[in-house]
Amino acid sequence: MSIELGDVENIAHLARLHLSNEEKQEAAGSISNILALIDQMQSVDTDNVEPLAHAFDAVQRLREDVVTESNQRDELQKIAPETEEGLYLVPKVIE
């Protein structure tokens, strides 16, 4: 199956990626090739097969409800692009 430019635009938006026209063309082509590879899966009947999300049948371990972390704001915000008064700054959020 191949994908169209419109699909590329849609998924690029969902993934918050900006693509130039040239990049969109390239993406449509290469992703179509990848989908052709992926589509080989459809040759096998899997109607009665249970999907496998994890390689092993392990189950989730639980953590005790205790506070183990302390305030490290200053340290952690040293590597932030932009902060003020302890807040991370971003372009205005419009609701």
Binding site: V66, V67, T68, E69
Partner: peptide, 29 residues
Amino acid sequence: STASKLFSGTSTEYGAQPNTQASIYDLAM
């Protein structure tokens, strides 16, 4: 009303100074 967050050991107390209860998992490091 747990003492710590759902997936990390950070305090959930209400009303703290901004980002003083945001540790590395909460910040998606």
